[in-house]
Nucleic acid binder design. Structure first.
Lengths: 115, 115
DNA sequence: TTATATTTGCCAATATTTGACAAGTCAATA
DNA sequence: TATTGACTTGTCAAATATTGGCAAATATAA
């Protein structure tokens, strides 16, 4: 498993018939860096994902999802307890989401009511 | 959601009636650092997990799982696409595992047969 | 108050990641 | 086979991020 994100970016770039040298400057980097990003040897900065999505006429959400998945994968890829850890993490995420969902039902959500 | 790992360590330490000052030196750190680790403000080094598990008479696997879950959570905690990313990452892990499972059925696994 | 346990803030030390450049490979083709 | 263009790789200093260690602050109990 290499970089899902990088592979997708390369595919998209080739579909648009763009060269590294055409795309890299738009991201303010040289071709070497973008090459490494596509090969998963470097990480694109999170805040550049919408930019590259725009350049490649792709879904920002799709690329962000792949980028995040790569980050997660980097944490657990050589871990025998990867699946267990994922389960625990998932539970934590859902609890967090449940909490903020509850907040919606509380009065004065988002107001600064500390009078 | 704070640090599952840190909270578990604190619970275990208190169950054993140990003070930070007793445990910290065994991990070659001062009480301030261990305090931060228990509160999730610092990360214990991965390779120290078996050590702290031994000190606290706990399961190394349990603590490793919580530690990894914390690392994963740190990546996605503020991401709206957290769940999607987790799904993709999980698929990647399972594919990887499936691959190494296949390897077991190949001949000469682990030998250096490049003659 | 004193003593003990823990926490917090700060910043230097260390570790990790990135950016930039040069040199390299590879394929097409003149 | 020399040249060109696209991409890749290696190196290393610079930028970032993380940690370690200390001192001071807080908290709680005696």
């Amino acid at each position: 498993m290499k970089s899902q994100f990088g592979e997708r970016v390369r595919t998209l770039r080739e579909q648009q018939n763009l060269y590294l040298r055409q795309v890299a400057p738009l991201l303010e980097m040289d071709t070497a860096q973008l090459s490494k990003i596509e090969k998963g040897l470097r990480q694109l900065k999170r805040e550049q994902i919408p930019i590259i999505a725009y350049i490649l006429k792709a879904s920002s959400d799709e690329l962000m999802t792949l980028w995040l998945a790569d980050q997660i994968y980097a944490v657990v890829k050589d871990e025998k307890l990867a699946n267990e850890a994922m389960q625990v993490a998932e539970k934590n995420i859902n609890q967090k989401n449940a909490r903020s969902k509850n907040d919606e039902h509380l009065p004065n959500k988002g107001s600064f009511n500390n009078c």
